[in-house]
Measured scan of single mutants.
Amino acid sequence: MSSSSWLLLSLVAVTAAQSTIEEQAKTFLDKFNHEAEDLFYQSSLASWNYNTNITEENVQNMNNAGDKWSAFLKEQSTLAQMYPLQEIQNLTVKLQLQALQQNGSSVLSEDKSKRLNTILNTMSTIYSTGKVCNPDNPQECLLLEPGLNEIMANSLDYNERLWAWESWRSEVGKQLRPLYEEYVVLKNEMARANHYEDYGDYWRGDYEVNGVDGYDYSRGQLIEDVEHTFEEIKPLYEHLHAYVRAKLMNAYPSYISPIGCLPAHLLGDMWGRFWTNLYSLTVPFGQKPNIDVTDAMVDQAWDAQRIFKEAEKFFVSVGLPNMTQGFWENSMLTDPGNVQKAVCHPTAWDLGKGDFRILMCTKVTMDDFLTAHHEMGHIQYDMAYAAQPFLLRNGANEGFHEAVGEIMSLSAATPKHLKSIGLLSPDFQEDNETEINFLLKQALTIVGTLPFTYMLEKWRWMVFKGEIPKDQWMKKWWEMKREIVGVVEPVPHDETYCDPASLFHVSNDYSF
């Protein structure tokens, strides 16, 4: 037999072997998808029940369902290793196997995995149920939502704001400190077992692309791009910072340095994350009609249902689908009040099986009107990829998912749209002054938050990498806050605090 014939037969044999492996992989994935749908849905439903009704029974049910899901994933991840990716030609099959071969938290021992889940659930519970009591009246206690958040959004009393700011960190942050220390250790162990340098590197892996249509993007490039983007917006932020400082000097004349940092408790919310609520103090042309339409919403008797129905109309107007019937029947759109304790931070849920929901303790404000559009943007994205195989139902990356939500809320905030839905009067006219007011309001929300987020994530990356010793977490946190964000702590904090974890995203294990 000629050498060319042998070569042809060899190629046929290799192709047949690849085809056999690929067919086996497809069969394996079909079985996995069928089983995963049910187990993931049960786990998601148990998590939803806990988040909307925080009880010991629900946390136990959530843990049990989560353990079943984790055990299943660990088993299936091991089985998926049997299919070598280099022998799979079908890109859809390869991407699913690649996702499943990534072990995630299931790489930890059973004891450590359970401990990590306990830590995460405990931190979430402390954050959502933590109360601050009035020292003069111990029976008068406030949760973060709505009590403390209400103070931080609306109060102009310097000392009341300081009390709310400090009490939240003292009551909740200190409880979270030992848990967060354990969390860092276990998450790093999980990341390294998955061949990442640390948990920050694991997060950045979400943005990594290897040879898809000839395109590559590394975790290191992400760090470079983040640094570059921050340097680009820094001059604009510094101008905004100086303008806000001048306006705060008028409101709090004896508390603000004309050349120094801004006190952290005066920036519009509990964390200084969004400066939106400073608009009334900083509006350049106050004689113009108010483009913050909160009062109009209240006057027109809007409620949470109306807010979300208007958001749905907005999405339908640009060619996107209505929310499902189940969305309206199962979402929690208002604070249950004293009936039950719930996690009030707005979140969009894709539970699986076409079950999409939003959890939000909606208030009738323009801020929540825009947040509703943001969260519904997440749901629209979830619905758009719902037909994909189970392992591919995700956003391109976390940042893109947020961008989908944010672009919709930005569009909904324009005076033209607000006028079209009757929240600005029919005779409202846009001119240079109203446009400047609008742009300032947008800058308070968007530009003001960028250094906050950059600095927070930089601190977390450094902590996970071990570049900040545990006994210097708070020292470095406030050094970076002053240097990068231009914000100063109103009272000193020692290493018993854990100020970063006083933010939902940190205590609940979300990256930005």
Rank of each mutant, 00 (worst) to 15 (best):
L95F: 09
T20V: 08
N61S: 07
L73V: 06
N33Q: 04
A25P: 14
Q76G: 13
L29D: 09
F40R: 00
I54R: 11
A46I: 13
E22R: 13
Q76Y: 00
W48F: 06
F72N: 10
A71Q: 03
P84E: 09
E57M: 04
K74T: 08
Q98C: 02
N63T: 12
M62G: 13
T20W: 15
Q76T: 00
T27P: 03
D67V: 04
Q96T: 12
K74G: 03
L39Q: 04
F28T: 15
Y41C: 14
N61T: 05
Q96S: 11
V59S: 06
N90T: 00
L39D: 13
A25I: 02
Y83G: 15
T92A: 00
L95W: 02
M82N: 10
E57D: 09
T92M: 00
T27D: 00
L79R: 01
D38A: 15
Y41P: 15
T27N: 05
A46P: 14
L91C: 01
M82H: 07
I21T: 08
E57I: 01
K68L: 11
M62Y: 10
D30A: 13
N63D: 10
D67N: 06
Q89T: 04
K68D: 13
F40Y: 09
Q96K: 12
I54F: 11
S19I: 01
N90G: 00
L91N: 00
E23D: 03
Q89N: 01
Q24N: 15
L73D: 12
K68N: 07
L91F: 03
W48N: 02
V93W: 13
N61P: 08
D30K: 14
M62D: 12
T27C: 00
F40T: 12
W69Y: 09
I21Q: 12
D67F: 03
E35D: 01
A71M: 03
Y41W: 15
Y50T: 11
N49T: 01
L91M: 03
D30W: 14
L45E: 13
H34A: 00
T20N: 09
E35N: 09
Q89H: 02
T27R: 04
W69I: 00
L79H: 09
L39H: 03
T20P: 11
E75L: 01
W48G: 11
N33P: 15
N51K: 09
Q24L: 14
N63M: 03
H34E: 14
Q102H: 09
F28V: 15
I21Y: 13
L29H: 12
A25Q: 14
A46C: 08
E23L: 03
L91I: 04
A71G: 03
K68E: 13
L79M: 00
A71N: 02
Y83N: 13
E37T: 12
A71W: 03
L79E: 15
M62T: 10
T92L: 00
Q98N: 03
F28P: 11
